[in-house]
């Protein structure tokens, strides 16, 4: 056991200087046990310096376990050059009134779109070979949930009920997966600082795997109920080779909310 964990340390040696103990770490040669299995980063492969993979029919293959790709703390962090967020007065007032403890994510509710939780997520397409009819985004957090993207050419139905992830249809434009989503509820926030939206929200996400380890997401957010004009943001997800999703049942023992204080954006 001891030897095995030492191996993990040795493999992770590139970051040991952070701990300030590097000089005390001996080298060993066996694999770690009880330290996360396939989820131990020391066992995971490094991202190969390779172009984005393709399916046998030539379609870009976006599958894999990713981290990031959307706003967490503040959606403004991803604003593209020349873009701005212009809140309508009612939305601005709503945002100013929001308290951090009311953030649905803190209460173990879904992120909605385009917000991302700081946990890994996996893209799965089915069927795995040939033209996918469905894509799934499987989220480890927050919460243990999924998005379903219809790739079979259907349109949004006209009898949508509002939901956390809305109704998503996707298609390919060259190297880019384009996902259009409507039918959102107005319950989730875009970020910790509480950027709001209404049920008029419509998102167009454009995912491009620029190389093996990088997935760019350029999303245009349109919501005439909350924003003066649409705005476009860009966030980048990075591949976690060798990782598997793990369980994260957020509401199991959530003691946080009752101890959170102050306005959103603190």
């Amino acid at each position: 056991m001891r030897r095995s964990i030492l191996t993990a340390v040795a493999l992770a040696g590139g970051t040991l200087a952070l701990a300030g103990h590097a000089q005390q770490v001996p080298v060993a040669s066996t694999a770690p046990a009880g330290s996360g299995g396939a989820n131990n980063p020391s066992l995971a492969g490094t991202v190969p310096d390779a172009p984005a993979p393709r399916l046998p029919d030539g379609t870009p293959d976006l599958s894999g376990v990713w981290v990031g790709g959307g706003p967490v703390g503040d959606i403004r962090d991803g604003l593209m050059p020349g873009e701005e967020i212009a809140l309508l007065p009612a939305a601005e007032a709503l945002m100013k009134s929001r308290m951090a403890a009311d953030d649905p994510e803190a209460r173990c509710l879904p992120t909605g779109v385009p917000r991302t939780a700081p946990y890994p997520w996996r893209i799965v397409q089915t069927p795995a070979f040939g033209k996918a009819t469905h894509l799934f985004f499987l989220f480890e957090g927050n919460i243990h949930s999924y998005r379903q993207i219809f790739m079979d050419g259907r349109e949004h139905p006209d009898d949508l009920e509002a939901t956390w992830y809305g109704h998503s249809v996707g298609h390919w434009e060259g190297e880019t997966l384009v996902i259009e989503t409507v039918g959102f509820n107005d319950l989730f926030w875009f970020d910790f600082v509480g950027h709001p939206h209404t049920t008029q929200l419509r998102t167009v996400e454009r995912y491009t795997r620029t190389n093996m380890g990088t997935l760019e997401n350029v999303t245009t957010v349109s919501d005439p109920g909350a924003y003066l004009k649409p705005f476009t943001i860009k966030f980048t997800a990075t591949l976690r080779p060798g990782w598997e999703l793990m369980e994260y049942i957020c509401n199991e023992n959530n003691q946080d909310v009752e101890h959170i204080r102050g306005p959103a954006g603190l």
Binding site: A12, T15, V25, V67, D103, A106
Partner: peptide, 21 residues
């Protein structure tokens, strides 16, 4: 050792924040 490991892993796995601020 596991302390070293945890510290070493920080730079590898650290996301930007938790499910709350």
């Amino acid at each position: 050792v596991f302390g070293f490991l945890a510290a070493a892993m920080l730079a590898v796995v650290a996301p930007v924040s938790a499910h709350h601020s």
